[in-house]
Amino acid sequence: MKGRVLDDALLRLSTSDNVGTTVDDLESGTEIDADGRTVVLAEDVPFGHKVALEPVDSGGEVRKYGEVIGTATQAIEVGEWVHTHNCESTRGRGDRAAARGESA
């Protein structure tokens, strides 16, 4: 696997990532040693989903694979589950163009 598995629980694919991917179903309260920093899961996070390794401001970049995968729609704390409820794509947003009256 590319990247590094932190404490047998979270996969960080690139050092610049601010989220990690769970390698198992993890329960709320699970403590993970992320390179000396303790990440405590704020909620249950299913296998393959993302957990914040660093705090992200609302509107801030969410990074995985060393790349930007979206922006936070609200402030995200360390240990929170990161998914469609707090992170969104910036691409293919025809809805925004339509709202601006640019759509064909």
Partner: peptide
Amino acid sequence: MGVDLRGAQPTPGNQEGGLTTIEE
């Protein structure tokens, strides 16, 4: 089409499987 690509990408199964955005 005046729509959000998120309506189709990622699909419901993709999202359930942990994929949040088309970029990811």
